[in-house]
Design a protein around this nucleic acid. Structure first.
Lengths: 194, 194
DNA sequence: AAAAAAAGAATGAACGTTCATTTTTTCTGT
DNA sequence: ACAGAAAAAATGAACGTTCATTCTTTTTTT
């Protein structure tokens, strides 16, 4: 176990360094040598844990995506009432984007860039299923508008990425009150009107 | 004029090649030599038109951003009624993201990446003023929710970027009906409820 | 003929990756 | 429990390649 533990620590340090450097400099300006230095490791050691640079960034993406969805669904129970479940998930996602914003920024960069392999991208999407299931149920119950999942995501969830990004750029800070406003906008854009 | 024209043609070809290559391969995988080849120009010639690679990508960004806002506000008149003006701008933006989606994708990539200088980013934001002015007027008239411009943009405009991206990835196509639904979601997320 | 624009080849630096070696960990027999 | 052999992990230096940029020459325009 001691041996395995050490390996995991090193792998995590490499993933962490990748996130930080890609966030600050972009993929195009983060050489393996810098990643190694930041993780306190020799460049050659990276290749004991990852096949090559592409594999490192793919695996980092999948790791962070999994962390994101675990965080989002941590307290969620598929039997909850629709609105309650949605609010819980939405607020967990908002928390993630604000508290773990290094990780959220990394995902935003990956999602708009050809820097991740298509295969890893697909892998990352899978974990979102509970939210899609909730929407499906909501549509059947007549609580959620009968729109494509993509449109629902675009209006209910994706705006948080934009807000996180502008906040990170310093032009604007998202306080408690803003967050409640944003939640109301999100919910009202997907709920069935009475 | 012949000379000037020729120069402009060459500059445009370089900008166009940059957009196409960065879209398909990412900034990290588009060398100057490929840009030159695609523009039918020697690598050395790039440096007659641009200081260096960073300058080329900054200028490309500003060019595309200006094209975007020109397109968005082409038929807009600041004296229009709020809702009519918003609908016009929104639909022009939607058109741009669907018809000029190479350019829209390039902007999406730039906006979530540290590949553009902060100065050029600021330069690109300026042209959005007419929309902010419209919202300001809407808030005064009690037609638009009194929210921060960033939140309004996040819910009313930004979802289009996400939809364009997923459409480009082929998972989904945004038809006329979808577009009308999306517009209704956008408007209902920012309009004052009666 | 002079000036400007463009070209291809050249340059030095930086990159991703691998190689030969050293260090650390694990295993074995006593 | 422990010496020491075997295996595994880690390293720094080195390799070949590719890159952004520049230099010198050629071509085109004035």
């Amino acid at each position: 176990m001691a041996k395995l533990q050490k390996s995991i620590d090193k792998r995590n340090a490499l993933v962490k360094a990748t996130i930080e450097l890609v966030n600050n400099n972009g993929f195009h300006a983060t050489p393996m040598s810098k990643i190694a230095k930041m993780a306190n490791v020799s460049p050659a050691t990276i290749y004991l844990y990852f096949e090559n640079k592409q594999d490192l960034v793919n695996q980092t993406y999948i790791d962070v995506k999994a962390e994101y969805t675990n965080y989002a669904f941590a307290d969620f129970d598929p039997n909850m009432p629709i609105e309650e479940g949605f609010e819980m998930i939405w607020k967990r996602i908002a928390d993630f984007k604000l508290n773990e914003c290094e990780h959220a920024m990394f995902l935003a960069q990956c999602d708009n860039t050809p820097m991740i392999d298509e295969e890893s991208r697909q892998e990352g999407i899978k974990h979102l299923q509970p939210l899609l299931d909730l929407w499906e149920r909501g549509k059947k119950e007549g609580v959620i508008k009968p729109l494509s999942d993509y449109i629902l995501y675009a209006y209910a969830i994706n705006p948080l990425s934009f807000l996180m990004m502008t906040q990170k750029r310093g032009s604007f800070t998202l306080d408690k009150a803003h967050l409640e406003e944003a939640y109301q906008s999100a919910w009202s854009s997907i709920k069935m009107c009475k």
